[in-house]
């Protein structure tokens, strides 16, 4: 287990606990969705990011509550980290009236404007130009905020991403681009999609700074994003490439034909939550019991959320035409 190259004392205990709890909450949330899917309780599809928690959670918690977030189709984790109500999220994924989007959006479209979540997005790459627009508002109003814009290694080849990086660069917009490189776009390995798989180079033509980090090391993610946040607020866009791996399938239909069991198992070993736990124990920051307690509490939180969602009523048919227009 690689300890992060920082001195342990600089990490305050409350933060360490928040990082751990939020990763656990994300993991358990998605495991619960997976289970409910298998039980036929979830309609449609959903994209889980089991194994990618450090990237999402570390990034969002390193930014500020007032910062904006644009997530992707695989958006549960950053959205949860942003503090969106777990019950309302669960209800949304179950298509209920009490869902965060009143049952109109579902897993791929979770948004919560009050929390700065400007949407998860079902269309790859299209969140990036929108992120620039949020950046324009920030600059126009002279606010101290930034925009977190997530996208994947697959989406990195879309024109929208390139256009957005260029716009953010030329207008000095406070947009932090987070490239979650999990090695695949559905079944297509990064090497089949990009001749040069070093996606950090995607920042070069736009003249913006970039860092590549181990996206499974929550403290490395946190520290890098923390620093980047202030840079971005002051000086304009930046790209952070976070290397990680999706242990779960692409979506519910995935049969893992494109990758080996060995490969998946090897990454299970690198699970960011297990790794962080080992670190916390090794550094003597928390006891095994304390961590077990966090585990039990987050499990209870998710069970309660699932129950809330399951027991919530379906949307009333009279709402079907609500909110097409303001």
């Amino acid at each position: 287990m690689e300890p992060t190259q920082t001195t342990p004392s600089k990490w305050n205990k409350q933060l360490l606990e928040e990082l751990m709890r939020t990763m656990m909450l994300s993991r358990k949330f998605e495991e619960k969705i997976e289970q409910m899917f298998a039980e036929g309780l979830v309609h449609g599809t959903t994209h889980l990011g089991i194994g990618e928690e450090a990237a999402a959670v570390g990034t969002v918690l390193a930014a500020r509550p007032e910062d904006y977030l644009l997530a992707t189709h695989r958006g549960h984790q950053p959205v949860l980290a942003k503090g969106v109500d777990v019950n309302a999220m669960m209800a949304e994924i179950l298509g209920k009236q009490s869902g965060i989007c009143k049952g109109k959006g579902g897993s791929m479209h979770i948004a919560d404007i009050d929390k700065g979540v400007l949407g998860s997005n079902g269309v790859l790459g299209s969140n990036a130009p929108i992120a620039c627009g949020a950046g324009l508002t920030i600059r126009r109003k002279g606010e101290d905020k930034i925009v977190l814009c997530f996208f994947g290694d697959g989406a990195a080849n879309l024109g929208a991403i390139h256009e957005a990086m260029n716009l953010a660069a030329v207008w000095n917009l406070p947009v932090l681009f987070i490239l979650v490189n999990n090695g695949y776009g559905v079944s297509t390995h990064i090497s089949k999609a990009s001749r040069d798989t070093d996606l950090a180079k995607r920042a070069y033509p736009f003249g913006i700074p970039v860092k590549t980090i181990d996206g499974n090391d929550i403290l490395a993610v946190y520290e890098t994003v923390r620093e980047a946040r202030d840079y971005v607020a002051q000086s304009g866009p930046m790209l952070i490439v976070q290397n990680t791996y999706r242990i779960s399938g692409h979506s519910k239909s995935d049969q893992n034909r494109y990758r080996s069991k060995e490969e998946i198992d090897a990454w299970r070993e690198k699970c960011p939550i297990l790794r962080f736990k080992a670190y916390l124990l090794e550094q003597d920051r928390f006891t095994e019991e304390a961590i077990d307690q966090m585990d039990a509490e987050t499990t209870a939180q998710i069970e309660a959320a699932a129950e809330y969602g399951i027991n919530s009523p379906l949307p009333s048919l009279d709402t079907i035409l609500d909110d097409v227009y303001a």
Binding site: Y68, L118, P129, G133
Partner: peptide, 11 residues
């Protein structure tokens, strides 16, 4: 897209 992002944030 940027116009849309601006619109949803108060511009």
């Amino acid at each position: 897209g940027a116009a849309i992002g601006a619109a949803i944030t108060g511009s």
